[in-house]
């Protein structure tokens, strides 16, 4: 990892137990350099969502640290951190809570104090990047699922984040919507952490992958290599879909 440039994300020895005592993370270490697209793989219950909740301070670390572009996540830096970490939730209906697409994309920047023409410009730009500008005045519930997910990405892009964190971005998408989202994600010039168990999608979009299993990072390397290691995948309840083979290259 680059040492002169500040990493987009640094997680050191992160451990967390839920209030009921269930330990979810047991010391997670990872770093993501600026501009990287990294997949975070893991079976259900591995602690993926818990880890994501730490990245913008919704949950606070029981032990260890999270640093976003050099800023440690702490109570007094929450506002700054939340602007830098763009979280895209799994269910777009949770993410899109405003009456229209335009208002929803404007929500983040407006909270940061952006107003008037500047706000319009930011919203227009974010919607253009996901190809949803023509739907700006629609209420979110009149959009298709794939369109809603793209708007959800736009709501976060409007905040010009340092790193985009996507929770299961391909879930519930039909094949065409899945491909369209991949094209959009590839076109963005931003650091991406993609949490998923859609392994082909991870291979398609991310050079590097991490496997989170049992609350620790169990593997970290090029996606192609990790996915070619059948034993490794099997140990962590991961497997490639039927008929899928890692293309040579």
């Amino acid at each position: 990892m680059g040492s002169t440039v500040v990493n987009s994300l640094e997680v050191r020895q992160l451990a967390y137990a839920y209030p009921d005592g269930t330990q979810a993370l047991f010391g997670v270490d990872l770093s993501i350099a600026r501009g990287e697209r990294v997949a975070l793989l893991g079976p259900n219950g591995a602690g993926k969502t818990t880890l994501v909740m730490h990245l913008n301070g919704i949950l606070t670390a029981g032990h260890g640290t999270v640093t976003v572009a050099g800023t440690p996540v702490a109570k007094d830096t929450l506002k700054e951190v939340r602007q830098r970490v763009g979280l895209v939730f799994q269910d777009p209906d949770d993410q899109l809570f405003m009456p229209t697409v335009r208002d929803d994309v404007a929500f983040g920047p407006a909270n940061a104090g952006v107003r008037g023409d500047e706000l319009d410009r930011v919203v227009k730009d974010a919607l253009e990047r996901v190809g949803m500008l023509e739907f700006a005045d629609r209420p979110p519930h009149h959009l298709s699922f794939g369109q809603r997910r793209r708007v959800a990405v736009a709501t976060v892009l409007a905040m010009a984040p340092e790193i985009l964190v996507l929770d299961e971005p391909s879930s519930n998408l039909d094949p065409a919507a899945r491909r369209e989202l991949a094209e959009i994600l590839r076109s963005l010039d931003v650091t991406v952490l993609m949490v998923t168990h859609d392994l082909p999608y991870a291979l398609e979009l991310c050079e590097r992958a991490l496997i989170l299993s049992g609350g620790v990072i169990a593997a970290d390397g090029p996606t192609r290599e990790l996915l070619a290691d059948t034993d490794l995948l099997a140990r962590h309840r991961l497997e490639l879909p039927y008929g899928f083979a890692i293309p040579a290259g």
């Binding site: 939340r82 404007a106 929500f107 983040g108 909270n111």
Partner: peptide
């Protein structure tokens, strides 16, 4: 979950003035 999504985008208890 919606509240978490709002917090993630800097919600502080007041709706920002958009229009």
């Amino acid at each position: 979950r919606v509240h978490l999504a709002m917090l993630s985008r800097g919600y502080t208890g007041e709706m920002p003035i958009i229009h």
